[in-house]
Simulated scan of single mutants.
Amino acid sequence: MTDENSNETTAAQDFEPLTETYERLRHSTDSTELSEFARRPLPDRADQASFSRATALLEAVAGNPHTPVEDRLFLAQTMPFPNVLIKLSVDAEPVVRQAVAANEDSKNWLLGRLTKDPIPEVRDTALVNKHTSWKMRLEGAQNPETDAKTLDYLGVLGTEIEPGASPILSSMVRRAVALNPNTSAQMREKLATDPSEEVRRAAGR
C-alpha cells in the first residue's frame, strides 16, 4: 500500500461515524484493539469534539467483557466520567466494581448502588468513599454484615473524620456503629466517650 493510500485509509477511519465506531467497539472480540483504546491518552479538553468522542468510545470499551480485566480495572481507577463508571459498576469482576467504589469521582448515587453490591468488599469500599451519602452510611452502619474495619471508619465520622459534618447525621451513624454487633471492642470503648450523649448511651448497652 502506498503512503497516499495509507493516509486515505487513516483519514477514513478518523471520520468513521461515532455510532458505528461505538457499536464496533461494543461488540468487538479483539482484546488487543480494546486494550489500546482503553490506554489511549485522551485528547486535550480544548478540542471538545475529539474529547467527547473519545470519552464516548471509552464507554463502549468499558462495557465490553472482551476488554482485558486489567484494562477495565485501569479505567475504573482512573476515569472521572460517569458514563464510563456506570458501565464498570456492573462489571462481572468484583475487583473492577470495587475500584469504581473507591474512585472519588464516582457520584453518590452510584456509590449508593455499590453499597448494595453482593460482594462484601465492594460494599465496604463504597461505604468509606467520602462522597457516599449519609443515608447510605447509616444503612451501612446498621448492617450486621459490615466488617469491623469499615465500622471503625464510620464510627469516627463527624469527630476524627469530616469534623465539620452535620452533628445530627454523623451522630446517627456513630450511634448505629455503637449498636452494630460487628463493632470492635476498641471502637466501642471510643464511642463510650463520644461527644454525643445518644452515642455514649448506645455504646454502653
Rank of each mutant, 00 (worst) to 15 (best):
103 N>W: 02
62 A>T: 12
168 I>K: 14
176 A>F: 05
65 P>Q: 06
15 F>W: 08
85 L>F: 10
25 L>Q: 07
124 D>R: 06
64 N>Y: 09
61 V>L: 03
184 S>P: 05
18 L>I: 13
155 G>W: 05
33 E>G: 01
90 V>A: 12
125 T>N: 04
182 N>C: 08
149 K>V: 15
63 G>R: 08
135 K>S: 11
16 E>D: 05
71 D>T: 10
81 F>Q: 15
46 A>G: 14
197 E>V: 15
2 T>Q: 02
167 P>F: 06
150 T>M: 02
96 V>A: 01
157 L>C: 08
141 A>W: 09
77 Q>S: 14
60 A>L: 02
88 L>I: 11
130 K>A: 11
124 D>I: 01
184 S>N: 07
186 Q>A: 15
13 Q>S: 11
178 A>D: 00
64 N>H: 11
113 R>V: 12
87 K>D: 01
155 G>D: 02
165 A>L: 03
174 R>D: 07
35 S>K: 13
14 D>Q: 15
195 P>G: 08
123 R>A: 04
196 S>L: 02
156 V>C: 06
163 P>Q: 10
90 V>K: 13
180 N>Q: 04
194 D>A: 02
58 L>I: 09
183 T>A: 09
164 G>T: 10
165 A>H: 07
196 S>V: 10
168 I>D: 09
94 P>G: 05
106 S>E: 01
82 P>T: 13
107 K>Y: 02
140 G>Y: 07
192 A>F: 03
45 R>P: 15
171 S>W: 00
